[in-house]
Amino acid sequence: MDFLPTIITVLDSTIRLSIPLLLACLAGLYSERSGIFDIGLEGKMLAGAFAAGSAAFVFGSAWIGLGMAILVAVALALVHGFASITHRGNQIVSGVAINFIAAGATIILGQAWFAQGGRTPQVSGPGRFNAVELPGAAALRDVPVLGTIYADLLSGHTILVYLAFLTVPVTWWVLYRTRFGLRLRAVGENPAAVDTAGISVPWLRYRAVICTGILSGAAGAYLALAMNAGFVKDMTAGRGYIALAALIFAKWRPVPAMFACLLFGFLDALSIRLQGTPLPLVGRVPVQFMQALPYILTVILLAGFIGKAIPPRAGGVPYVKER
């Protein structure tokens, strides 16, 4: 029995399934580190996916699709900012609202524009993000183990996959090595300290939610133009919430966020792979259990049984300038 191809296949789909989570998770990271809770990742991702699918079909370009996805998701992020930063509304309520607006609008507009039951038409060729062959992949394929890993696991993904992984160190760098990141982390912990240091709290937070919009739009574009060949209604299927869970799991830090997303992606890949296959020792694991596992793990984490996830201290609280 040859295990390697099986493992490679599972890991390969782990990567594919992790990417939307990763992009959405990093998206949420910017907003939440700035003290704005965002349970509207799902909605922004969905709207982004729809915009990507539509624009890619109309213009025949995946890149224009990506651009539109980002524009639309940023617009929704700004709505969230308007409610929760400018009007100091309830951030949870605002996030819920955005999820519904996106869920409904994507179907209505999709039906109105394309009349395919809420789908966007299939895109292909330059309308999609296609697999990129890493240099030398074909040549190295026959090298045992390492060559296979390189050719079948590392190579052959879309450009967005590589960009998503690149976003992890970039986010880390932005957060810990730039002025913007320093201020972002500060405003999520103690906005009064930022305010007395002469920095505008609202403007800082608006910039954070814009970053959230950009990345959640990219997550949506990945779903529509890389993982699939067009938008399908409700195609996010709760990934925005899993990303949120991963963010909590990672304790709002970029590198652990990547591992959390890979873990949740792996669980997903495994549950697809294992459907009905019994495991040694435990027997047949219901696929639904695997699907619920990210949520169960997050609850256990939140309950403080495995480490403590302490959110940014000022998270969820509108800043009112007062001494």
Binding site: R177, R179, L182, A186, V194, A197, G198, I199
Partner: peptide, 11 residues
């Protein structure tokens, strides 16, 4: 340095 970073990069 918060608010008086001087440049966009922290290093």
């Amino acid at each position: 340095i918060l608010g008086a970073e001087g440049s966009a990069l922290l290093t």
